[in-house]
Design a binder for these strands. Structure first.
Lengths: 238, 238
DNA sequence: CGCTGTATTGACCTCCTTCAAATGCGGTGG
DNA sequence: CCACCGCATTTGAAGGAGGTCAATACAGCG
């Protein structure tokens, strides 16, 4: 049930089997349909939310109605680990596909981190990686052209989903619409569409029926100059 | 000496006078010229670095030589508060103007936070605000046009510099070149130049001799739809 | 006064957007 | 099983924001 989180954390810290147990004991999960708000701007959530399956996103909407997705949340990602420190949410979170979500009482988390430094350290690590991803997205939007931008996002998701244990070696389920993709990359859906077509023709990707396959992962990585160092993955001890 | 940091922290947490003392005691500062690297990608800094005056930036360079600035560091901002958790730096940090920088031994910081929860909380707060700023920059690059983008950055800096106590009500020293500005906004310096001219003609800004003045702050904020909630400032107790 | 880095300008180009219509497709109800 | 609906994808034509290249003007500084 909590395996995506545990799998992910094991790439960022040395969690022992005992620690795993502690996390798994917190289970209280629910199913959420696609396109539902999990948290809205201005909220002060009491529980900590965790995505266990499906895709969700952080987003902000401008006065003119435009929406910018500022993060994709995949299995193992926290929605609001630390709002308590900030007070109110400055952005909203919504599902992009059906998701299973865990609600963890904030007190439980606080208690857990206080008593188990390794867990605290692992959670620390996740938020710093989230920040590093934001920086890389900024580079992506600022300096790369649409095709490389899309390719880079696909490469990042491949790694992140593999780390969570929900992607195979060269592909994964990809429920986002072209519109969603456009909103995360700062493009229009029309241009995303045309760019995807070009990438398909170039044999870089196979994207159909909400499934992305990458025939030649190394080639795609080279195409967009992908370097996963910003994900700060640590060699996993078997 | 440490007033920018202390001034800033007081907007994010309830620090008492005693806490102030503790921070101030750590002083070991130095002057750094403009365009010097403070930290490079791959480094594992031992000390924690803090900007006390001047402008610095986080940046990443692509293989093709393009540079993207992913954060501006102003007085009171930390460079690398938490690399210890991540290991190596995934980006570099350089000065944009002459800066005074403080080097704080990591152990001192660890010790301080462990023994003084309020300080720990305040430092927590700063890193979460940094993350919120990244999200807003993503919105800026993805959804706003050049003129609003520039305006938004200017508004953000006005608030941040005021919070640090180094800006007056409607302006501040602005040492960045148009090239620097271009690299932070994902534009070219040519286009930044033309856009700045238009903004000057519109009376939105006065930018000359490395000094930015904003004749009508409310107007500029309205122009770019600026909402400072993402900076998570707390009403300061006098 | 000359040097060097920054700002400015012009001409041209292209990536991406806009608007609008058409096509395709999964799901549902008859 | 088929017709139909709603949503997502695809396509076309035209326009605009921003990029590229390269020359010129300007300003601070030793």
């Amino acid at each position: 049930m909590f395996s995506p989180l545990i799998s992910k954390l094991s790439h960022g810290a040395d969690l022992t089997g005992v620690d795993h147990q502690r996390l798994a004991k917190l289970a209280r999960t629910r199913l959420v349909g696609a396109h539902r708000n999990l948290i809205e701007r201005g909220d002060r959530p009491q529980d900590v939310h965790l995505v266990l399956s499906g895709f969700a996103c952080r987003y902000k909407v401008l006065r003119n109605g435009k929406r910018q997705i500022v993060a994709l949340l995949v299995p193992g990602d926290f929605c609001d680990l630390h709002v308590a420190v900030l007070g109110a949410m400055d952005h909203s979170i919504a599902t992009l596909s059906p998701c299973t979500v865990a609600d963890l009482p904030r007190d439980t988390i606080l208690d857990l981190t206080e008593r188990h430094p390794r867990i605290a350290h692992a959670l620390w690590w996740t938020t710093l990686v989230d920040e590093a991803i934001l920086r890389e997205w900024l580079v992506n939007m600022g300096q790369r052209e649409a095709d490389q931008q899309i390719a880079h996002l696909f490469c990042e998701l491949l790694v992140r989903l593999q780390v969570a244990g929900v992607a195979d070696a060269n592909g994964y389920p990809f429920p986002l619409t072209q519109e969603d993709l456009a909103e995360t990359l700062g493009l229009t859906s029309v241009h995303v569409n045309r760019t995807l077509q070009a990438m398909r023709e170039a044999g870089l990707i196979v994207l159909q029926k909400r499934q992305l396959d990458i025939p030649d992962v190394e080639r795609l990585k080279a195409f967009c100059d992908f370097d996963p160092d910003y994900l700060h993955l640590v060699k996993r001890r078997e």
